[in-house]
Design a protein around this nucleic acid. Structure first.
Lengths: 187, 187
DNA sequence: GTGATTTTTTAACATATGTAAAAAAATACA
DNA sequence: TGTATTTTTTTACATATGTTAAAAAATCAC
């Protein structure tokens, strides 16, 4: 559980008081490979920290699957579309490996934000970095073709390559698996 | 100048105190069509509000131009990549029309965040919405082909269509102008 | 280890999009 | 109004990617 706190502190230092309050509120859950963490249509009530494991964040459309992002251990995540407005999630989150999550519930996060300036600051910075990462992906999608995106993914995620199937990588890149296979063969 | 305050309040209510402080710190600048608002390589020091006009936010790569976003009047914007880390901007911002901006400088924003919880909350919510919008674009780029993206753009931005050239729309969609022309002809 | 299942690759063909160059249309301006 | 400039469209061709189906390879379960 201390990892959650540690992660937060590395983004923006929290007061002792908040740290204790977080510790008292943190819950934990484990999932086995393939388990659903958040269904489509279910409001996401939590801010998750991945202690161990790997999750994917995806949705179905046009008979295809699109993966927005993978989150491995030592990452904070939430289902942005649902969390911000507390509306039903369009995205599905499942465990790609046996996974342990610690989390704060939405109401607790909001309360922490309300009552503790240092936590509010942390949240602002956390979301700023998240936005920046999403923007980077946006840029890649705009300017890079599939081959460049694949090479970029390999470079940025070498530590995850053994843990993610090529089918999932294709879904992340927004291309068919056949196309990815072709790209890999060309090398 | 009151529009800036009004916009902020519509996202998250500010205390009277902060509002006055913002008013005392707001600066204003006008640009004529074609003026550079922020150069590539220049650190973005400001949080801008568009009183009047239209700006585009773009960059060059591979002998092409890619537009990340258009911001018309009554919008808050900053150059996210540069603002967050106070590093040189990769993106360029120019005025597509005669434009009036009011703005707060980075240090003032940070100071407001530090000193006023309600402003920090506003910034968190503002950035959350920004992140959500960037994510929506991400999704479009992943799943939609150029024709769908064009139709989506037309639907979402009907009020801007007369103010943006087709070349710029193509750059926003991440396709060549020839391709956009073809798409429009197909109808 | 062996057979079943899942994942990955290959092949063949269709469509979408890029590039280059030129034509046409719209706009700016003297 | 007429000319120059800019924007948009069209044409022709090349490449990238999608789809379907089948083959090959890897992994899983017993």
């Amino acid at each position: 559980m201390a990892d959650f706190i540690h992660y937060c502190n590395s983004i923006s230092p929290l007061s002792k008081e908040v740290m204790n309050e977080i510790l008292s509120k943190l819950k934990s859950r484990t999932f086995v490979k393939g388990d659903l963490i958040n269904k489509q249509g279910q409001v996401c009530r939590d801010l998750f920290f991945i202690e161990k494991g790997l999750v994917k964040h995806f949705y179905h459309s046009k008979n295809r699957v699109f993966i927005l992002r993978f989150f491995p251990e030592n990452n904070l995540f939430t289902i942005l579309d649902s969390y911000i407005n507390q509306t039903p999630a369009e995205f599905i989150t499942i465990a790609l490996e046996d996974t342990t999550l610690t989390y704060l519930e939405y109401n607790e996060v909001e309360e922490l934000c309300r009552n503790h300036h240092s936590f509010e600051t942390f949240m602002r910075k956390y979301i700023s970095f998240a936005a920046f990462n999403i923007l980077k992906r946006n840029k890649e999608m705009l300017e890079d073709d599939a081959t460049e995106r694949y090479n970029g993914f390999v470079k940025e995620n070498s530590h995850l390559l053994q843990r993610i199937s090529l089918g999932d990588i294709a879904s992340y890149l927004g291309i068919s698996q056949v196309s990815l296979s072709r790209i890999r063969a060309k090398k």
